[in-house]
Design a protein around this nucleic acid. Structure first.
Length: 427
RNA sequence: GGAGAGAUGGCAGAGUGGUCGAAUGCGCCGGAUUCGAAAUCCGGUUUACAGCUUGCUGUAACGGGGGUUCGAAUCCCCCUCUCUCCGCCA
């Protein structure tokens, strides 16, 4: 959610920035609603002040057992105007906030301007794709040849876009998540958290999935939602809280399954594990002081990169352009891993600074200090990033570590998690 | 699932129709006292929004929503959550 003050003060500048995201702001409607709001709020508050004053006098008169009938008559005359004003004001406030909830965040000044994916800016490229003597297989062939990746059975159990993983590959999948959590907790200073996978609508609104993107979510019959990312439960930990300044930054990491309906992605990535209704992800979340959030974004991104480096997977870092940014993000770096089977880089992590956008929706604040004295509560900045998407990391390991004999070498750093095994072969 | 109790400020906890944004205690901040500290004493200490002379004034908020009333923390209805007992259960 944007700051309503900013819209009042500089609506044109907001509209210009949003235009760079490809979003047209209905400035005329906002101006009109604001003008109405102001007029009605002032008059309504005047009515309320008068009513409160008269009511107080009635109470005093009653206390002295005096006649209050003239006061009662006057307050009665306020009645209809007051009620009508209150109702109109509530209606307009509702319209305004509903509108505000659907406006995306403003891009940071460092975000490249562009329309879509093709305008994203490659920031750096790390590692060299390995040369394969024969055309590299994709993870589906590798996994099915090993008899450890089973899509047809998953379809039988549920529907498409699910997978069944067996044996050493399931173990490798678990090892990856463990390795990521251990790295972030031991080397990067994150506290591990275990969180609910079902959340309420308030939490979904807090991080920005609702009200605009309900069709991307799985909703249960009791009104709860399956989380599309650990970002939702983890970030909402601080919803409605005022955090002592000395507790910042707070750095949390969680390993959760993620559920996405993938509505509207029919035909895209239908093969393999790239786009699934259910996948595991290790997610890092940071709560920081506003002045620290852009340093924190670089740091967070480097934490996600550390996993790819340790796994020795070639990747590149891409700064999303204004037109490709997610709804709540002010700036995002995508990490794209090299997939030999697709002969391309594919997204494996997304690291974003949301500035105060989510914090304002959640009313997540921290207590500032002025010369050692407690000051006013101010909105924190929130960040998060995948560190990493576990399913896609498994894909990347399979494809990058495949051998000509059909086996897959286990990356060094994962071997302690795999009982020391160095490769996965057909059992 | 059944029966009952409850939800008030950072915390504890009063308040059952009016001068209550809310007693009191704890905590926190400032000051006095002290060589310094503890103890003691004095003062301060919620948030959001609006208006304008930016410091004041006003409005709203006692789990959430609705209602009764000139006036609701207080009365009525609905919802959510918490606790206790019983049942069931990984």
């Amino acid at each position: 959610m944007l700051d309503i003050q900013l819209l009042r003060k500089d609506l044109t500048a907001v509209a210009v920035k949003l235009a760079s995201r490809g979003v047209t702001l209905d400035t005329a409607r906002i101006e009109q609603l604001e003008a109405e709001r102001k007029a009605i709020q002032v008059s309504t508050q005047d009515f309320q002040a008068r009513r409160n004053q008269l009511s107080k006098q009635i109470g005093q008169a009653r206390g002295k057992s005096e006649d209050a009938s003239t006061l009662l008559a006057e307050v009665a005359s306020l009645g209809d105007d007051l009620k009508a004003g209150e109702a109109r004001l509530a209606g307009i406030q509702e319209d305004l906030s509903a509108l505000l909830m659907t406006i995306p965040n403003l891009p940071h000044e460092s975000v490249p301007v562009g329309r879509g994916e093709q305008d994203n800016l490659e920031v750096r490229r790390i590692g060299t794709p390995r040369a394969f003597p024969l055309p590299a297989l994709d993870h589906v062939e590798i996994g099915e040849n090993l008899d450890l990746l089973d899509f047809p059975t998953a379809v039988k159990i549920t529907t498409s876009r699910f997978v069944l993983i067996r044996g050493a590959l399931a173990h490798l999948h678990r090892a990856l998540a463990q390795f990521m959590l251990d790295t972030h907790t031991r080397e990067h200073g994150y506290q591990e958290v275990y969180v609910p996978y079902l959340v309420n609508a308030d939490s979904m609104r807090g991080t920005g999935q609702l009200p605009k993107f309900e069709e991307d979510l799985f909703k249960l019959t009791n009104g709860m939602y399956l989380i599309p990312t650990a970002e939702v439960p983890v970030t909402n930990i601080v919803r409605g809280e005022i955090i002592p300044a000395e507790n910042l930054p707070i750095k949390l990491v969680a390993h959760t399954p993620c559920f996405r309906s993938e509505a509207g992605s029919y035909g895209r990535d239908t093969r393999g594990m790239i786009r699934q209704h259910q996948f595991d992800k290790v997610e890092m979340v940071q709560f920081v002081r506003p002045e620290d959030s852009y340093d924190a974004l670089e740091e967070l991104t480097s934490h996600a990169e550390a996993i790819l480096r340790k796994l020795d997977l070639p990747y590149r870092v891409v700064a999303l352009c204004s037109g490709d940014l997610g709804f709540s993000a002010a700036k995002t770096y995508d990490l794209e891993v090299w997939l030999p089977g697709q002969n391309t880089y594919r997204e494996i992590s997304s690291c974003s600074n949301f500035e105060a956008f989510q914090a304002r929706r959640m009313q997540a604040r921290y207590r500032t200090e002025k010369d050692g004295k407690p000051g006013k509560p101010e909105l924190i900045h929130t960040l998060n990033g995948s560190g990493l998407a576990v399913g896609r990391t498994l894909v990347a390991v399979l494809e990058n570590y495949q051998n000509a004999d059909g086996s897959v070498t286990i990356p060094e750093v994962l071997r302690p998690y795999m009982n020391g095994a160095s490769a996965i072969s057909r059992e």
